[in-house]
Simulated scan of single mutants.
Amino acid sequence: MIHKIATIKNLGKLKNPVFGKENWNGILKNINIVYANNGSGKTTLSLLFRSLKGNNEILSKKKSFHSDGQIEIQIFDSTKREFNYKRNK
């Protein structure tokens, strides 16, 4: 189970969200509701979760517009195992 989203950079609308004490800390519960305006990145987030099954091509097609950097993602599961996405892998 996914426990925490530590970093998301240059993925669709999620160019570089900041997780911290003032807003969401990135930790997911057993049940989560994602509510936001249209065009805010909900589908991009669901594609990120779908890519964890091994289909990295999904993410490479969602690079943020007007961004020079590569997509970077860091996620931890409930056993503190780290999953990284860098350089399209």
Score class of each variant (00 low, 15 high):
Asn10Cys: 06
Gly54Lys: 08
Thr43Cys: 11
Phe83Ile: 01
Ser64Thr: 09
His66Tyr: 10
Gly41Pro: 05
Glu57Tyr: 05
Trp24Glu: 03
Phe76Ile: 07
Asn25Val: 00
Phe49Glu: 09
Asn56Trp: 11
Phe83Trp: 10
Ile2Asn: 06
Leu28Phe: 10
Ile2Cys: 03
Arg81Thr: 13
Asn56Lys: 11
Ser60Asn: 15
Lys9Cys: 07
Gly26Tyr: 04
Leu11Lys: 04
Lys4Ile: 07
Val18Met: 05
Phe49Asp: 05
Ser78Asn: 12
Asn32Phe: 03
Ala36Thr: 01
Ile75Tyr: 07
Ser67His: 09
Lys29Ala: 09
Leu11His: 03
Lys29Phe: 10
Leu48Trp: 00
Asn25Tyr: 03
Asn55Met: 07
Ser64Trp: 04
Glu22Asp: 04
Leu45Glu: 02
Pro17Gln: 02
Gly26His: 05
Asn56His: 13
Lys89Asp: 13
Ser67Lys: 09
Lys29Ile: 01
Lys15His: 04
Tyr35Glu: 15
Lys15Arg: 07
Arg81Asn: 13
Pro17Phe: 04
Gly39Trp: 08
Lys86Glu: 12
Phe76Asn: 07
Ile5Asp: 01
Ile33His: 09
Lys29His: 14
Lys80Gln: 14
Thr7Val: 14
Thr79Ile: 14
His66Gly: 07
Trp24Asn: 05
His66Glu: 14
Asn88Arg: 15
Asn84Tyr: 09
Asn10Ser: 02
Phe49Arg: 03
Glu82Cys: 14
Lys42His: 11
Asn37Phe: 13
Asn30Pro: 15
Phe65Arg: 10
Phe65Thr: 08
Ile33Asp: 05
Phe76Gln: 10
Leu11Cys: 03
Gly20Arg: 01
Thr7Phe: 02
Tyr85Ile: 06
His66Ala: 11
Ile58Glu: 06
Ala36Cys: 00
Val34Thr: 07
Leu28Thr: 01
Phe49Tyr: 10
Thr7Ile: 15
Asn30Met: 10
Thr7Tyr: 12
Ser60Arg: 14
Ile73Thr: 06
Asp77Pro: 00
Leu28Ala: 06
Phe76Met: 11
Arg81Val: 10
Gly39Asp: 10
Gly69Lys: 15
Ser64Val: 00
Gly12Tyr: 00
Leu48His: 01
Phe65Val: 12
Ala6Ile: 13
Lys42Tyr: 11
Gly41Tyr: 05
Phe83Cys: 02
Tyr85His: 03
Lys89His: 10
Leu48Ala: 07
Leu48Val: 00
Ser40Phe: 06
His66Pro: 02
Trp24Met: 04
Tyr35Gly: 10
Arg50Gln: 13
Glu72Ser: 13
Thr79Pro: 06
Ile27Gln: 11
Thr79Phe: 12
Ala6Tyr: 08
Phe49Pro: 11
Lys4Met: 04
Leu59Thr: 01
Arg81Ile: 12
Gly69Ser: 15
Val18Leu: 01
Ile58Cys: 09
Lys15Asp: 02
His66Gln: 13
Phe49Val: 09
Lys4Gly: 03
Phe83Ala: 01
Ser64His: 08
Pro17Met: 05
Leu52His: 00
Gly41Leu: 04
Ile71Thr: 00
Gly69Ile: 14
Phe49Trp: 09
Asn56Arg: 12
Gln70Arg: 15
